[in-house]
Design a protein around this nucleic acid. Sequence first.
DNA 1: CGCTTTTGACCAGCGC
DNA 2: GCGCTGGTCAAAAGCG
Length: 526
Amino acid sequence: MAESYPNTNMPGSTMDRYNYSANLEFSDFFDFTDWTKGDLALIVSGYPESQNYAANDVVNSGGSSSYHEDPNNIAASGDSRSVMGEKQITEKVAFKTKSEIEILDDGFKWRKYGKKMVKNSPNPRNYYKCSIEGCPVKKRIERDKEDPRIQIDKIESSSSRKRNRVPAIIVMESIVQMPYDATVRLMLASLERNLLPDAVIRRLTRLLLASRLRSGYKPSAEFQLSDLVHFAHSLREMPIAIKTERPKSQHYEVPTSFFKLVLGKHLKYSCCFFPDKSSTLEDAEKAMLELYCERSQIKDGHTVLDVGCGWGSLALYIAQKYRNCQITGICNSVTQKAYIEEQCRDLQVQNVDIIVADISAFDMEASYDRIFSIEMFEHMKNYRDLLKKISRWMKPDGLLFVHYFCHKTFAYHFEDVNEDDWITRYFFDGGTMPSANLLLYFQDDVSIADHWLINGKHYAQTSEEWLKRMDQNSNSVKPIMESTYGKDSSLKWTVYWRTFFIAVAELFGYNNGEEWMVSHFLFRKK
DNA sequence: CGCTTTTGACCAGCGC
DNA sequence: GCGCTGGTCAAAAGCG
């Protein structure tokens, strides 16, 4: 078996690309008028003392809107009482962070307006205002006089106008200090209200990934090959796929018009390949499609099956490139089929047939020279049964090409067991995160001919492009979100989709793309 | 040049 | 009122 792990040709210093943040107005993030209903101050009431406070102290669902007094006298001088006559509303929070880093970047833009020595302390106190015009949030930062490694932040938002209350920033400042579960809970609460700047979502995502890498994803602290073998074995006991309807409704029934605005012109809703970092998304879509053709050794005249064809990016690409190929695509939604057939008419292509079916239940007699599956195995469980079924659709000398995203070492289920895993809940419930070589444990009916890995940065950049396009087309996206999710939830879902793209980018960009990545397999029939 | 940071002046509150 | 402290302003300095 020839295994090669080619350098995926991503140039070195590309991190600047990944610091992209959307050019949105302050008011796009902070919907003041919405806050009068859910009292955000409650979410952050109390002064978290960096180490030893319980999550429940932070997420306080009852009580008054004023903040609790600091048990450790961190912020004794604050005055949150209402001024006589007009209603002055002040939200405050204070916390300590242990950090060697001189200036902690919290993702917000600040303007420094003062610096003062504090009595009885060798360290100065710095005064900042949020640099966005009209934002009433201020913060002051000083270092602990006993332990200068500890940074003390006090943040307050004060305004006479109720609609200008800005506890959002307080939420954000607090959550980055919190234990894992409290962080997640607040992130969710903040997300729903559209309160987090991209930089914060990115930072939180990385924190969560780091935390999960330490404990959550791995079946054991020392992940061993035997764990993977066990995982692979356990998949054999499961149905081919579970909960096939949920991801479909979660994800794939959003109107095609949305994906037309977000994806590249091939409508490839999977990882693209960037020959260099300045490649356009269209280039990258094409480069990956071309890579599939090359690695699968496809020839003109072959019969081709694309299992899980989506909007037909690969089917249509092959149909145009190899006019004598006859291509069948299987997708799970009628809207996708309708779109592909429309494309066939526009492109004057006659060699494509689309079947709408649930792969786990579907079967047929036909057989093919080449079978492709692009990012569909992630929705499946029982790879043995699935590969057995697919192998029956292969001609004796046929080849199967599989592309899935993966973790380099371990495999895990996407399960909606933790409320924290909102990506699972809303986008991938019932799916699997395979390990890079998981399919090699399922060679009952097929055997490996070749195997490649692709650095995760390609997916990171792909998702960044999707995000960029979604933002650029926000005017057109808005009515789609409103008609899909309802006017009340459209903002929330817009945020979810943006956060999903950000999270995908951070996941695959993690550890320079060497942690989560994309795996390609070429199998022959046994 | 366009931005941020520094810095002394100023101001408000408070205890005496 | 006076002295002290903490917070703010805005002119000047610093920076890439």
